[in-house]
Simulated assay, not measured.
Amino acid sequence: MTVASGDGGRPIDPGTRIGHVHLKVAEIERALGFYCGVLGFALTQRFGGQAAFVSAGGYHHHIGLNTWESAGGSPPPPGTTGLYHLAILYPTRAALADALRRVEAAGIPLDGASDHGVSEALYLRDPDGNGVELYRDRPEAEWPQDSRGGLAMVTRRLDLDALRRER
């Protein structure tokens, strides 16, 4: 595979961040029930029954939801390209534990729960079948290192009972 670069491969500015994700959904109300009702995002703006924007902490929006091309639609079938998952970063382990309790109280099943060494993550699906990762990063000083001092990410089973006890 050839990777094209307009300037010889100079890295992107390290301050660059992903600002938001915009999801096609079948029903705005159902999507808002999940993102606002279960996860706790705040509705910041709405365009009738066709689009809504939600955020955490007063930002203009972290997640856009729309039915412009997907009203009444179904998730794409396996074997197609598209979004694998969106990842929501929680600031603390206690905040991630709160998210787990919210998801469980809503009866939403987890697809998985992993300890990656650098992070702890919960995996699930929103009502439209979009993959959602809820995670928290460990402090960089705790990240696992390989024998040469490089990053050594792992995938282990996350202890959900211990996470549930986190306050």
Rank of each mutant, 00 (worst) to 15 (best):
D146Y: 09
A121I: 09
R17A: 15
L110M: 04
Q45I: 02
A71D: 08
G131A: 08
L160C: 05
T80K: 09
E133A: 13
I18H: 09
G64Q: 00
I12E: 13
L151S: 14
S147T: 14
D159I: 14
A95Y: 13
V154R: 14
K24H: 12
G9C: 09
M1S: 05
T44N: 01
R138T: 04
R10Y: 05
L39P: 09
E142N: 06
E166Y: 01
Y59D: 14
G8T: 03
E120I: 11
P11W: 08
L134V: 06
A42G: 07
T67S: 00
R156Y: 07
Y59C: 04
M1W: 06
L124D: 04
E166V: 04
Y35C: 01
A31I: 09
S55H: 01
A71G: 07
P127I: 12
A162Q: 01
D137P: 06
P109F: 03
I108K: 01
R46N: 00
A113I: 11
R164K: 13
G19A: 15
I63N: 00
R125Y: 00
Y35N: 07
R136W: 05
Y84L: 05
E27H: 15
H22D: 12
H85W: 10
P14A: 15
S5A: 10
D128N: 14
G79D: 09
Y35D: 00
R93C: 01
C36E: 04
L86Q: 04
R165A: 15
R101C: 15
H22P: 06
W143L: 13
F53C: 00
S74M: 11
S119G: 08
Y123R: 10
A31W: 02
E120A: 12
N66D: 10
R30M: 07
P127H: 10
Y123S: 14
T44D: 02
W68L: 07
R138C: 05
G117H: 07
E166G: 02
I88P: 02
A141F: 02
G15S: 12
M153A: 12
V103H: 02
G9Y: 11
T92R: 04
G15E: 13
L122W: 04
H85V: 12
A106N: 09
Y123Q: 13
L151Q: 14
L110R: 06
E104S: 03
Y84D: 10
G49M: 03
Q50F: 11
S114R: 11
Y135P: 09
G37P: 00
L23F: 01
S74Q: 14
Y90W: 08
R164P: 02
R93G: 06
A95G: 11
D161M: 11
G82A: 00
A52F: 00
Y135D: 01
Y123P: 01
R136P: 00
R101F: 13
G49L: 02
G33Y: 01
S114W: 10
L39F: 13
R125E: 02
R46C: 00
R164F: 03
V154G: 03
Y84F: 15
D126A: 10
T155V: 15
G73W: 03
E120S: 12
L39Y: 04
H85K: 10
H22Q: 11
G129D: 06
T81L: 10
S55I: 07
L124M: 14
P109N: 05
P144D: 11
R164W: 06
A106Y: 12
V118G: 07
H60N: 09
E133I: 15
R156H: 15
P11M: 05
G40V: 13
R164V: 04
A51F: 07
D159W: 06
E166Q: 12
E27N: 15
